Amino acid sequence: SDIKVHVGDITVELHNVSEEFARLVEEALRLGLNEEQAKEWAHKALH
């Protein structure tokens, strides 16, 4: 599904992702990663 993740003043739109993936992206953003890094990190975490 499509999910918007908000962290501080950052909003990341995720398309066709699981809630778990979105949660991992949100966690990575909170750790200070940028959007691209957060998506990559979440992807690796799920595989």
Rank of each mutant, 00 (worst) to 15 (best):
S1F: 15
S1Q: 13
S1G: 13
S1A: 13
S1H: 15
S1Y: 11
S1V: 14
D2W: 07
D2H: 14
D2T: 15
D2I: 15
D2C: 05
D2S: 13
I3P: 04
I3L: 09
I3V: 11
I3T: 08
I3R: 09
I3N: 07
I3D: 07
K4G: 09
K4T: 15
K4F: 06
K4S: 13
K4A: 12
K4V: 15
V5D: 07
V5W: 01
V5S: 05
V5I: 13
V5T: 04
V5A: 04
H6Y: 02
H6I: 15
H6N: 13
H6M: 10
H6P: 07
H6W: 02
H6T: 15
H6E: 14
H6L: 07
H6R: 11
V7C: 04
V7G: 08
V7E: 06
V7I: 10
V7M: 07
V7Y: 14
V7W: 15
G8H: 08
G8C: 09
G8T: 05
G8D: 09
G8I: 04
G8Q: 06
G8A: 06
G8Y: 01
D9F: 06
D9M: 11
D9Q: 12
D9V: 10
D9W: 03
D9C: 09
I10W: 07
I10Q: 09
I10G: 04
I10P: 04
I10V: 13
T11H: 09
T11L: 11
T11Q: 07
T11F: 10
T11N: 04
V12K: 03
V12E: 04
E13S: 13
E13C: 07
E13F: 03
E13L: 06
E13V: 15
E13G: 08
E13A: 09
E13T: 13
E13D: 12
E13P: 04
E13I: 15
L14M: 08
L14G: 06
L14C: 05
L14K: 04
L14T: 05
L14I: 06
L14V: 05
L14D: 05
L14A: 04
L14N: 04
L14F: 03
L14Q: 04
H15R: 07
H15F: 06
H15I: 12
H15N: 10
H15Q: 10
H15L: 09
H15Y: 03
N16C: 09
N16T: 05
N16I: 04
N16M: 06
N16K: 06
N16W: 08
N16S: 08
N16A: 08
V17W: 07
V17S: 09
V17N: 04
V17R: 05
V17K: 06
V17L: 05
S18N: 08
S18I: 05
S18F: 07
S18T: 14
S18V: 06
E19P: 11
E19W: 15
E19R: 12
E19Q: 15
E20Q: 14
E20A: 15
E20C: 08
E20L: 15
E20H: 12
E20M: 15
E20P: 08
E20W: 14
F21G: 00
F21R: 00
F21W: 08
F21L: 03
F21Q: 01
A22V: 08
A22T: 04
A22W: 12
A22L: 05
A22H: 05
R23S: 08
R23A: 10
R23H: 08
R23T: 07
R23C: 05
L24W: 09
L24H: 06
L24Q: 03
L24C: 02
L24N: 02
L24M: 09
V25T: 02
V25L: 06
V25C: 02
V25I: 09
V25M: 05
V25N: 00
V25W: 03
V25R: 02
V25P: 00
E26V: 12
E26I: 13
E26T: 12
E26S: 10
E26C: 12
E26R: 13
E26W: 12
E26N: 07
E27T: 14
E27W: 15
E27C: 10
E27Q: 15
A28W: 02
A28E: 00
A28G: 12
A28V: 01
A28F: 09
A28T: 00
A28N: 02
A28P: 00
L29Y: 03
L29V: 04
L29T: 02
L29A: 01
L29D: 00
L29S: 01
L29W: 01
R30K: 14
R30A: 09
R30N: 09
R30I: 10
R30V: 08
R30F: 09
R30D: 02
L31A: 12
L31T: 08
L31V: 05
L31S: 11
L31R: 12
L31M: 14
L31C: 09
G32M: 01
G32D: 02
G32C: 02
G32H: 02
L33P: 00
L33I: 03
L33E: 01
L33T: 01
L33N: 02
L33Y: 13
N34A: 07
N34T: 14
N34R: 05
N34C: 02
N34W: 02
E35P: 10
E35Q: 09
E35H: 07
E35F: 14
E35K: 10
E36C: 08
E36L: 11
E36R: 11
E36Q: 13
Q37A: 12
Q37F: 03
Q37I: 02
Q37C: 07
Q37N: 07
Q37K: 09
Q37V: 03
A38V: 01
A38M: 00
A38I: 01
A38C: 01
A38G: 01
A38E: 00
A38Q: 00
K39D: 02
K39I: 14
K39A: 04
K39E: 03
K39F: 11
K39W: 13
K39C: 05
K39Q: 08
E40S: 10
E40F: 12
E40D: 11
E40A: 13
E40K: 12
E40W: 14
W41N: 02
W41S: 03
W41Y: 14
W41K: 03
A42E: 00
A42P: 00
A42L: 02
A42R: 00
A42V: 02
A42Y: 01
A42W: 01
A42F: 01
A42G: 01
H43D: 06
H43A: 11
H43W: 15
H43G: 07
H43S: 10
K44M: 14
K44I: 06
K44E: 09
K44Q: 14
A45I: 13
A45V: 15
A45M: 15
A45G: 06
A45W: 14
A45L: 11
L46H: 05
L46G: 03
L46P: 01
L46W: 13
L46C: 03
L46R: 02
H47G: 11
H47M: 13
H47N: 12
H47E: 11
H47S: 14
